[in-house]
Design a protein around this nucleic acid. Sequence first.
DNA 1: AGTCAAATTATCAATTTTCGGAATGAATAC
DNA 2: GTATTCATTCCGAAAATTGATAATTTGACT
Lengths: 265, 265
Amino acid sequence: MTEQERAAGPLDRAFAIVGYVANQTKAVSVAEIANALSLPVPTAHRLVGNLEERGLLQKALGSKRYVVGNQLVMLSAKVIGAAFRTARRHAVLRAVAGEIGEQCEIGVVRDNVVAYVDSVRVSQPQGLQFNPGEAAPLHCTSTGKIYMSRLPGRAREKLCRSLALTSYTDNTIVDCDTLLKLLEETRRRGWAKTNEEYVKGVVGCAVPIVSPDRELIACLGVSVPVARVSFAELDRFIPPLQRAAALLSQTILQTDSEDDTLEDT
Amino acid sequence: MTEQERAAGPLDRAFAIVGYVANQTKAVSVAEIANALSLPVPTAHRLVGNLEERGLLQKALGSKRYVVGNQLVMLSAKVIGAAFRTARRHAVLRAVAGEIGEQCEIGVVRDNVVAYVDSVRVSQPQGLQFNPGEAAPLHCTSTGKIYMSRLPGRAREKLCRSLALTSYTDNTIVDCDTLLKLLEETRRRGWAKTNEEYVKGVVGCAVPIVSPDRELIACLGVSVPVARVSFAELDRFIPPLQRAAALLSQTILQTDSEDDTLEDT
DNA sequence: AGTCAAATTATCAATTTTCGGAATGAATAC
DNA sequence: GTATTCATTCCGAAAATTGATAATTTGACT
């Protein structure tokens, strides 16, 4: 039961509905929405209908219950990307890339692929480059593993079994049980590594960027040629990455204007 | 094409603005928004003001330019998470698209048009793209044919006669009796093909996704440039599609309500 | 199969919003 | 110092939202 302050316009209601649906783990009926948000039933139907027409909500296949729609997911991915591409957050990314001395990138998952929204390369192209806009599979990237590891147990297993675990290199994990085991470990540990599983000769690791209520927002990762850093040595990147992720978590909720009170030149 | 001014309500405008801001790499002024979206300037200010009040947009660095707000970022993170929790459908779709090597999509019929709810493209854009949210006519798409073929005889004929059998290419079936005959065959066979009937140079086929009691829920289809796969060769896609459809039938209707097994301290 | 409660859809008049032109104030560029 | 662009205010007309009531369908449970 979330508190609502005042009578709201259509915009508030629309976002309230979207927010409610996004917060549920299962598809919800219109009646549930109406009840949860104290809306008159016909009104709830009309609003939900509007949202459905625009692709912001959509019916779960074969039922009348609703889940988040495609347009909304696309928009959300864009928003996350834009949020991290502001000057301040990009600076954090650049700083950690400089500290580590390797290419760093921020990625989110959309449509079951990892989409990279921002990246910083420290030197000229070498090894793997995740450029913003590119996409990579879930099962052989550190970011993908983190996302999967944070799913509830049942859903995680079902998703794993539904995925086509395409083999990209000799090291790609193609066995479901092996992957699940690794994900369980990833969940406990809180970060992920990748050992030449997507591109031969490239290893990497990633940590989650979470909101204050521990919601996963994105992942911060690093990719490096194995010739320069071994798989085992990756561990030393984790602390700096976690510090940067914590910083990003904080700034993500700050109004960008607050603490920039220092006069620059 | 659809150059018409879509009579946009406040909701459309709000999302258009949010989408525009999320697409920019730098902060944008209200004037830019108004110009880009062809809004009257005072209207743009009012709408942006509304969005700012709700934290969906915020001013950047004390200037009067806007970036995405943190409420919007929070919501987006939740949406991404919610979408990911219910991503098995997409995973199955991606797997079959990978197996077949062509673009696959899931479509449902709503208001006598085929609405595509999900799609996976395997390579760069080529040929036809059914993007989620788009709609196509019944009589010249495989999904539409399957839907019609499963209607009771009377209703099927009545629907056929009430449809405007618009001609899109030379191959579009515009004769009602011809179509009914084809539908009868489709019904017996259990799947449908389309031979450049909607878009020139694009052929496709589809199979039904049914509920446990054999009700039609949606259709799983593939679209491919005829230059790569001939109309006759489409048949080889049917078995993989049917396997994937069976998988979707099983997994879709399970209520994932019980998998709240996450216990994170 | 039959029954009943719940959910969904439809209808409609009063109300509340929104809409955007014109005018004015503020900020920036030249 | 002037010119230009941008931001803001005001307000009547027009349109959309709203939610009570009621009809219809769905689904669940004997």
